[in-house]
Write a protein that binds this DNA or RNA. Structure first.
Lengths: 95, 95
DNA sequence: ATAATTTAGTTAATATTATTAACCTAATTA
DNA sequence: TAATTAGGTTAATAATATTAACTAAATTAT
């Protein structure tokens, strides 16, 4: 009846990260931090989990002399996010 | 930007319970157990939390000689569920 | 020059939440 | 009367999320 909600995406912060990334080509860590309102520590951990799952790709580089972390969503991430959306909508169908 | 998701509702099982209850006047514990696929223990705990929040009302009675637990959603529960639905949809808007 | 502050994170420890496993009471069936 | 079923509850455990402390290098102030 009720399909399982992908537990990796059923987390406010990870879902917010995916939500930002699905609408944009590539973003910096600090941009995500601002958009989601998360602390750097929590964001770092949750992004690590999304990368481990293959949902996002994290690329470390430099902006001038400072290190910057950029990231983007993967095809597999897009698919998972769409599936999650479909499933959670089924929980809301009686509205 | 991203509003918080009510943590009481952002739980697969509690959301499923609310989803069932919003579409029906009153149900028995065992019906909910079957619909959600939850174990009795977990369901009992999560329903307790929903009741504590005032989102559902639990009524204990008897069906013949056996105890039965029935429950229904409250107005406050309907409101919270609708708000949750609105907020989570905002996370999915870029699809 | 060097001390304090800022940028950009990571990681260990802690707090919170969810789930299971064991348990309880009473009724029913073998 | 012994085992099983109905209908749960609760203590213990497992899983998750969040914070707080820390690292390293660059920049600004004294």
């Amino acid at each position: 009846m009720y399909k399982d909600l992908n537990p990796l995406l059923h987390s406010q912060l990870r879902l917010a990260v995916m939500s930002v990334l699905i609408g944009i080509e590539e973003v910096e860590f600090t941009f995500l931090k601002e958009k989601t309102g998360a602390t750097a520590g929590n964001l770092s951990l949750q992004m690590g989990k999304l990368e481990e799952a293959g949902y996002i790709k994290i690329i470390k580089g430099f902006k001038g002399k400072y290190p910057v972390t950029k990231c983007h969503i993967t095809e597999s991430g897009k698919k998972a996010f769409c599936e999650y959306a479909t499933v959670i909508k089924s929980y809301l169908q009686h509205l």
